[in-house]
């Protein structure tokens, strides 16, 4: 398969802070690729390097065949970019925003309407409303339409779902899946671990370093421990107990359960008997499949 993005040994420092530390990553054409990590992991810096907005200290990045430093002029014709904040002109209407960005890329709404139609149709009834007065979900749709209007080859979406409610987030991922095609590579970053499952492949990123790159399924498969979900009536006490117990490898609150890993098979047995001895009401222990978030936390502590 053809490569769309090739990142080799990219590092970037801001004063004393290391934002990116020797990043290597390859993204295939037509993929939905996710950079998953918390704030401050270096996602935005990486995206700005890939969109030719900042120059890395070391390393090279090739996007759609062009070097992001030396061939930035060529590259800028083929990129779609949606920065972290929905960067729209608040005082222009929905339609004016779209028209303006089409103009910037020397195209027109008419020419590429088919590309954005499924998304833009949803906000078209409000096309005379000022962008500043749209709801979060609608702003997101407009920003996406603006980033797509010039038919880019690679689309960079920097935290498109941050601060957006669960419904809009779900809708947004559905839209991205509709956009997926051989001609368009979509690179997304997100702090929400559960969104990893929506990507073809993901890179887990933390403190400027990539922890792992793989398909979500393979990442989950590579989790090397048995994971258990613990539950009882008094979760507060159980949480403290499981975190401080000497048989515990890791214990994290996870929704209505505690995700727990034992140091060894023997430790697991010891743990269960200790818990039973302490009389936790309705105690349940069940082996479960790990999620990306479990894997991320495991990789973080390595």
């Amino acid at each position: 398969m053809n490569l769309s993005v090739k990142i080799s040994n990219i590092s970037k420092k801001f004063n004393a802070t290391i934002a990116l530390n020797s990043i290597n990553c390859e993204i295939n054409k037509g993929e939905i690729f996710g950079f998953i990590g918390p704030d401050g992991a270096g996602k935005t810096t990486l995206f700005r390097i890939l969109t030719s907005l900042i120059i890395p200290d070391t390393g090279t990045a090739i996007v759609d065949g062009d070097n992001v430093v030396s061939d930035y002029k060529l590259l800028r014709n083929k990129l779609g970019y949606m920065p972290g904040r929905f960067s729209l002109y608040q005082d222009l209407t929905v339609e004016e925003n779209l028209k303006f960005f089409a103009g910037v890329f020397k195209t027109s709404i008419k020419e590429n309407y088919h590309l954005i139609e499924p998304i833009y149709k949803q906000i078209e009834p409000f096309k005379n409303r000022r962008a500043g007065k749209l709801s979060g979900g609608m702003k997101q749709k407009l920003a996406l339409s603006c980033a797509l209007i010039h038919k880019p080859n690679v689309l960079f979406l920097d935290e498109p779902t941050t601060g957006v409610d669960a419904v809009s987030r779900k809708e947004f991922w559905e839209m991205l899946k509709h956009l997926k095609s051989n001609e368009l590579t979509i690179v997304v970053s997100t702090p929400y671990m559960d969104e990893a499952a929506q990507c073809d492949r993901v890179a887990l990123i933390q403190k400027g370093e990539i922890l792992d790159i793989n398909t979500p399924q393979n990442i989950v498969n590579s989790f090397s421990h048995k994971l258990f979900a613990l539950k009882c009536d008094n979760m507060y006490e159980l949480n403290i107990e499981s975190q401080t117990n000497k048989n515990t490898h890791s214990a994290y609150l996870f929704g209505e359960t505690i995700h727990w890993v034992a140091k060894s098979e023997e430790c697991k047995m010891n743990f269960i008997s200790e818990i039973n001895a302490k009389n936790f009401k309705n105690f349940e222990i069940l082996q479960i499949q790990p999620s990306i978030e479990d894997c991320f936390m495991e990789l973080m502590t390595k």
């Binding site: 969109t51 907005l53 970019y81 729209l88 002109y89 890329f105 980033a147 010039h150």
Partner: peptide, 9 residues
């Protein structure tokens, strides 16, 4: 918005 303008041709 300047980011987008800079990224454009």
């Amino acid at each position: 918005t300047m980011e987008i303008l800079l990224v454009s041709p």
